[in-house]
Write a protein that binds this DNA or RNA. Structure first.
Lengths: 139, 139
DNA sequence: GTCATTGCAAATACTTTGCAAATCA
DNA sequence: TGATTTGCAAAGTATTTGCAATGAC
């Protein structure tokens, strides 16, 4: 799924959510939404836009990622304590994480087989289910 | 599963892993291994032993939890970025997390139904699968 | 021009580490 | 006694926040 959103669509997406399409937000949104789905941390995204010559402070990257997450444009992945990953794929899916290389990719729930949760306490409902499959190279 | 290990068994457990059963480690291990299964952070465990009158520094709690984890006596739960939870249940199981109350408890894999992972890339094998079921009170 | 947004630096939260003093075998 | 362990304080890493300057409409 290359080129999900064009620059115009990205601007439209931001204004639709009543966030001003500023230079910084556009630069970040382009990285997030114009190519294939991404997994980023504030740190990795900051490095990327810097490398492209854009000037965006790290604080703004943090704020923007949180902002986009609040708007539902990004998902959050609980992977390792210590850093927060954001995921441009907000559909229901699972993750595979290679602990040796740090690689992270999506797993289609269909590949994990049918999953149902029984035995939840009375009065509670499932809000969301996070599955992280940790893999290693076959030794 | 109350009273899993007696004080003597805990001392034996530590010496078996060639860690000296010092006053601090015994106090921490008692909290972790003498009652039912626990989920703790360095912070919560530190508060507990302090409340009991033991003097253990927070740094030692961190070091000891990491040490026990390395020895395989504790599992680690990836829940929320920002704090690390340790789990005295090291058997294969899943977690349910109540995002509103912060409650965390174990889920028997049997209650989640059969799970199998297909479609892993060539040359990789499953190392471990973490499932976090997030629940909320029925609205 | 007005109000949102940005960037910096400071603050906060969590965790690790260096090292001297204390402790255990 | 000799090696390990502890506690403190300092450093490190990840993230948030206050506020003056900037930028968008």
């Amino acid at each position: 799924m290359m080129q999900r959103l064009s620059p115009e669509q990205i601007t439209a997406l931001l204004t639709a959510h009543t966030v001003r399409p500023t230079r910084q937000r556009l630069a970040l949104a382009m990285h997030l939404f114009s190519g294939p789905h991404r997994h980023v941390t504030a740190e990795t995204l900051h490095r990327e836009v810097q490398a492209e010559g854009h000037t965006v402070s790290l604080a703004t990257v943090y704020n923007t990622l949180n902002h986009f997450h609040t708007l539902g444009l990004l998902g959050e992945v609980s992977l390792t304590p210590g850093s927060t990953w954001f995921d441009t794929n907000t559909k229901h899916h699972f993750h595979a994480f290679h602990e040796e290389t740090g690689e992270l990719w999506d797993i289609d729930p269909a590949e994990v087989g049918p999953v149902a949760v029984a035995g939840l306490p009375e009065g509670m409902e499932l809000a969301r289910m996070d599955v992280v499959i940790r893999v290693r190279s076959k030794g």
